[in-house]
Design a binder for these strands. Structure first.
Length: 409
RNA sequence: GUGGGUGUAGCUCAGCUGGUAGAGCACCGGGUUGUGAUCCCGGUUGUCGCGGGUUCGAGCCCCGUCACUCACCCCA
C-alpha cells in the first residue's frame, strides 16, 4: 500500500462505537443546558503558550506548530472556547455561560496504548460564576457521562489546588521540602519548574520520600476551604462518590481550586479517561476580562478502551428497516422508485444493488439488519403485488403494491 | 527523546534443526431455473515490511532500515 495514516492517527471505520460514545458522553450535559460550540482546530500559538502555560510539557514539546504562520493545532479545547467566549462577549449575557464541544486535539507525543497524536475529546465549560454548586454540577455531569454508557469502573479523584492567595506560600514550602530530599537531576529540574508536579511521580522510591510532604489541602486559605467544602456538599447531594487525591496534579497550568481526574484501571499505562478543574485566571491570562470558569475534557478513545475492558458493548448505528430485493429489469426500475418513496416518507431503506442472484441479495438483506425484505420479480409486478417478508419470523405474504408503502410506515 | 517486542492473505494467526506458504474467519459462487441467518461443496486474495549478506537453497540465520506496538516521560 502506498500510503498509510500518519503516526499516531487512525481511521474511524464502519462498526466503530465512536459516534455513540461521543454522543453518549455529552448526553447528560445536553440535558443540563450546555449549548454546543465549535472553535477552530488551530489558533494563534500564543493562545496556548499563555493559556495552557509556557512551562508545561504540552506547550514545550508536544505542540504541532506552523512557525511561519504563528499557528498551532490545538492541544486541548478550553483555551479556544474561552477565547471564543471573550471574543464574542458571551459573558455579557446570562451567567453562567454553559457550553459543550467535541472534536480532535493534537499533541506530538510518541503514540502508545490510549495515546494518539490526533485524539478526540468531548468537553464542557461553565463560565462566569464561582458558585461551588456549579463545580459539583460539572463534576457530576462527567460522572454521569461514564455511568450512562454502562461503565462501572471509573473512579473520580478530586482535590483543591488552592488559589493565588494560598498557593504561592504552599509552593514555596513544598519547594523547600523537596530541596532537602535526595532526588535525581531530572526530578530536581521538575521541582524547580513546578514543585507540585513532583508529587504525582509514579516511582515508589520517590513516593516513599514524599510521605511527609506538605499537602495543598492542608494549606488552603479560608476562601478556598469554604469553596472546597461547598463542592463536597454538592457532590454528596448529587450522590457522586470520589476519592480525595491530595497529590493530584494536572499538566495544564491554568487549574486552581477544584481539580479532578477520572481514571480507569483497565487501560494500560494511560489510566486517565478524563480530567478538569476550575480555571478562574485563564481569561485574564489570554488578555480577557476576569471570568471564572470550570470544565472538563473526556477522552473518547480511552473511554472506548474502558468499555472494551469492562466488556460493555455500545449500540451500533441503526441500519435500514426495509431492504428491497428486485428480480429482473422491470422490477429493478420499480424498486429504485419505491426505495426513494420510502426514504422520502422517513423509512430507512436500502436496495440490493449490483444485480446479484436472489440468494446473495437475500443474504445482503439479512446482513443489513432490516426487519422487512420486499422481494419483487417481474411476475409479481404483473400481478400488482410484492412479497413482503418478515426477516425475523421468516413469514412472507403477497401485498398489493398500492398498500405496500402504507404497511411499511 | 530513550528502551523492549512484533512485522506471513482483508482480519486473527500457524509455519519443525533453513528444502521456494497454510488454517480459521471474512468475501464470492453453487447445492434450491424466485428467498437470508444453519448445513454441505467449491473458489478468489500473498512483492512472507523493505534492502543487503551467508547458503546449492532463506518466511526461518546475520546486518541495516522502515513501520507498528508496549513502556518510560507526560497526559485524554
Amino acid at each position: 500500500m502506498a500510503f498509510q495514516s500518519p503516526k499516531g492517527t487512525y481511521d474511524i471505520l464502519p462498526g466503530s462505537p465512536f459516534l455513540a460514545v461521543r454522543d453518549g458522553l455529552l448526553a447528560p450535559s445536553v440535558r443540563a443546558g450546555y449549548a454546543y460550540v465549535e472553535a477552530p482546530v488551530f489558533e494563534d500559538t500564543e493562545l496556548f503558550s499563555r493559556g495552557v502555560g509556557a512551562s508545561t510539557d504540552v506547550v514545550t514539546k508536544e505542540m504541532f506548530t506552523f512557525p511561519e504562520r504563528g499557528l498551532t493545532l490545538r492541544p486541548e479545547g478550553t483555551a479556544g472556547v474561552v477565547r471564543a467566549v471573550v471574543e464574542h462577549g458571551l459573558q455579557r449575557g446570562q451567567l453562567p455561560v454553559k457550553l459543550r464541544y467535541a472534536g480532535p486535539m493534537f499533541r506530538a507525543e510518541r503514540p502508545q496504548a490510549g495515546r494518539f497524536r490526533q485524539f478526540q475529546q468531548v468537553g464542557i465549560e461553565a463560565l462566569g460564576v464561582t458558585d461551588p454548586a456549579l463545580d459539583a454540577e460539572v463534576v457530576a455531569l462527567a460522572a454521569d457521562a461514564f455511568t450512562g454508557l454502562g461503565l462501572t469502573g471509573v473512579r473520580l479523584l478530586l482535590t483543591s489546588l488552592g488559589d493565588p492567595a494560598c498557593r504561592p506560600a504552599y509552593r514555596e514550602e513544598l519547594g523547600a521540602f523537596l530541596a532537602g530530599l535526595d532526588l535525581d537531576d531530572a526530578t530536581r529540574a521538575r521541582a524547580a519548574l513546578n514543585p507540585l508536579r513532583v508529587l504525582d511521580d509514579k516511582r515508589p522510591e520517590v513516593q516513599a520520600l514524599l510521605v511527609d510532604a506538605p499537602l495543598m489541602v492542608d494549606r488552603l486559605c479560608p476562601q478556598c476551604t469554604a469553596h472546597h467544602e461547598g463542592v463536597l456538599e454538592g457532590l454528596a447531594a448529587l450522590g457522586v462518590a470520589f476519592e480525595p487525591a491530595p497529590r493530584l496534579v494536572r499538566g495544564l497550568d491554568y487549574y486552581m481550586r477544584t481539580t479532578f481526574e477520572f481514571v480507569h484501571d483497565g487501560l494500560g499505562a494511560q489510566s486517565a479517561v478524563g480530567g478538569g478543574g476550575r480555571y478562574d485566571g485563564l481569561s485574564e491570562a489570554i488578555g480577557g476580562p476576569p471570568l471564572p470558569g470550570i470544565g472538563w475534557a473526556l477522552g473518547i478513545e480511552r473511554t472506548v478502551l474502558a468499555l472494551e475492558a469492562e466488556g460493555v458493548s455500545v449500540a451500533p448505528e441503526a441500519g435500514p428497516a426495509v431492504f428491497v430485493v428486485p428480480l429482473g429489469a422491470a422490477a429493478k426500475a420499480w424498486a429504485v422508485a419505491f426505495v426513494g418513496a420510502l426514504r422520502t416518507a422517513g423509512v430507512a431503506t436500502d436496495l440490493a444493488y449490483g444485480d446479484r442472484g436472489l440468494k446473495g441479495a437475500m443474504k445482503a438483506a439479512d446482513r443489513s439488519g432490516a426487519r422487512w425484505a420486499v422481494v419483487v420479480g417481474d411476475r409479481d409486478l404483473e400481478a400488482d403485488v410484492a412479497q413482503l417478508k418478515d426477516l425475523t419470523s421468516g413469514e412472507q405474504t403477497a401485498v398489493p403494491l398500492s398498500e405496500l408503502l402504507e404497511q411499511l410506515l
